[in-house]
Design a protein around this nucleic acid. Structure first.
Lengths: 149, 149
DNA sequence: TGTGCCTGTCGATATCGTCCACGGGCCCAC
DNA sequence: GTGGGCCCGTGGACGATATCGACAGGCACA
């Protein structure tokens, strides 16, 4: 994981479809060398994969919300993530320190869908919820490939 | 935006580097037809781009946190996102309803870096902060390409 | 019936991904 | 100093792929 690797990662985060040829020109390495480095970065798990970035609005998912959840019975075994992973509306699930146990990020189309989703979350995971609705998203999913000083 | 488009989007979210040939075989269309559809999806903004998915840990970013911010002077003009976009540690910035005005997701390497980041956020944006540290991430950035019934 | 539009197929060509053999730098043992 | 092994990059060759243009079929509408 040297500066060249970081440079490669940065470039591929910006454009995951950049050709190895262009990538080589960009960082001053031959096509093959870049190819080898990318393969090793994938093997090491630094690069987890490549994916298309989709506009949620275009899919009819115009409502984003954060839901903090807390088990109703604090003594019960904690398998909240397992119970929630079947709900495709739940994009992220973070275990957190603080008053609540988990923070979820969800995307739905309408307030009505949010309401029924909340009901499913409460019953499926046996939790109480606190919901924060997102009004707008100034920026999202920014990524830096290199660690700043 | 028909079922074929949704199928394409789903496939490209799962594997952003899938070749048009394979994509065509997968959904039962010729390479060129798929190519045209993907181009139109990009033009329409449905597909925003392609990017590599990186393991934050591998970049030394092992500490994730949510920071809720609220302006110290509620009467001041609200340009918090502009003031924060220069901080590369801030990955997401959501304007939200509720007690606080914005929710930020940040990634740093150490608690010390989080401390100095909080100081910078407070002074740069003139806000008070409430921080929730992420302990673990059961799942993250799941995406569905199709809207469920 | 004819016209225009949309969307698909097919074919051609330049480019790209992928693999292999080769060569130079580096470290270490002797 | 010297030889061997290892890592990493280079360059070339091959098949696969992206990309473009020309053409055909379905459909709505006048």
């Amino acid at each position: 994981m040297d500066d060249i690797d970081r440079h490669i990662v940065t470039a591929l985060v910006a454009d995951g479809r950049m050709s190895y040829t262009d990538l080589g020109k960009l960082i001053g390495l031959s096509t093959s060398a870049v190819h080898q480095r990318v393969q090793k970065l994938e093997e090491r798990g630094v690069l987890r994969g490549f994916r298309a970035v989709v506009d949620p609005e275009a899919l009819g998912l115009s409502l984003t919300a954060f839901i903090s959840v807390k088990p109703i019975d604090p003594a019960a075994p904690d398998d909240v993530p397992d119970r929630l992973k079947g709900l495709v509306e739940v994009e992220d699930c973070y275990s957190v320190a603080g008053d609540e146990n988990y923070i979820l990020k969800v995307r739905v189309g309408t307030p009505g869908e949010l309401e029924s989703l909340l009901a499913r979350i409460r019953t499926d995971a046996e939790v109480s919820t606190r919901t924060t609705v997102v009004l707008s998203t100034p920026f999202e999913a920014r990524m830096r490939g290199t660690t700043p000083a």
